[in-house]
Amino acid sequence: MLNIIGTIFSGAIIGVLARFFFPGAVDMGLLATILLGIGGSVLAGWLAHRGQPGFNRAGCLASVLGAMGLILIGRLLF
């Protein structure tokens, strides 16, 4: 239970930092920000472990960069 709460909390912090450092306005709600942070962490962990399957969490800086990459991909696709 605490692992889930910790994941949500760290996802919120990482998502807010990614939105802050990304140039331009990023319009999304709290739930989308949390999911962005969690997704950025998973993406950075996956890239750091060279695409090996499994849930790998990365460091804070890599997670923020991964979340910023997800924002960029989202803007390019939509």
Rank of each mutant, 00 (worst) to 15 (best):
F9E: 00
L76F: 09
P53N: 14
L65C: 07
P23H: 13
L30Y: 14
A62S: 13
L30W: 12
L31D: 09
L43I: 12
V64L: 02
T33N: 06
F22M: 08
A18Y: 07
L17N: 11
G39W: 09
C60H: 03
L35N: 13
P23D: 14
G24M: 06
F21Q: 09
F21A: 12
L2D: 04
R75V: 12
V26N: 08
L70E: 05
L36F: 12
F22D: 08
G11H: 02
T33I: 12
A44E: 09
R19Q: 14
G51I: 05
D27K: 15
Q52T: 06
F55C: 02
G45P: 02
G54D: 04
F22N: 03
D27N: 15
L65Y: 09
T7P: 00
A18V: 13
F21M: 05
G59F: 05
I13T: 11
H49D: 02
V16I: 15
G45Y: 11
M28P: 08
P53C: 06
L65G: 10
G54V: 01
V16C: 04
A25S: 14
S63E: 07
H49W: 02
R19A: 12
G37K: 11
L47N: 05
G54W: 08
V26W: 06
R50N: 07
I13G: 01
A32T: 14
R57E: 03
G54R: 06
L77I: 15
R19T: 13
G29R: 12
G39H: 09
I34M: 13
V64R: 01
A25W: 07
L47S: 07
A18I: 11
L36W: 04
G54E: 04
L70I: 15
L61K: 07
I8P: 01
G11K: 06
L47F: 10
G66I: 13
L72G: 05
G29I: 11
L31T: 15
V16L: 14
M1N: 10
G66V: 13
M68C: 08
R57P: 01
R19E: 10
G40T: 12
L76Y: 10
L30S: 08
G29C: 01
D27R: 15
S63L: 11
L77M: 07
M28H: 15
V16P: 00
R57D: 01
L17S: 11
I8E: 06
C60G: 05
T7R: 10
C60D: 00
F21C: 04
A48Q: 14
A32D: 09
A48M: 06
P23N: 13
R50M: 04
H49N: 09
L77G: 00
G51S: 08
I14N: 01
G54S: 02
L76D: 00
I73W: 13
A67F: 03
L17T: 14
M28R: 15
M68L: 04
L77N: 05
L2Y: 03
L31P: 01
C60F: 14
L35E: 07
M28I: 15
S63Q: 07
L77E: 04
G66A: 10
A48F: 11
V64N: 06
L36V: 10
A25C: 03
F22A: 03
A48P: 00
L43E: 01
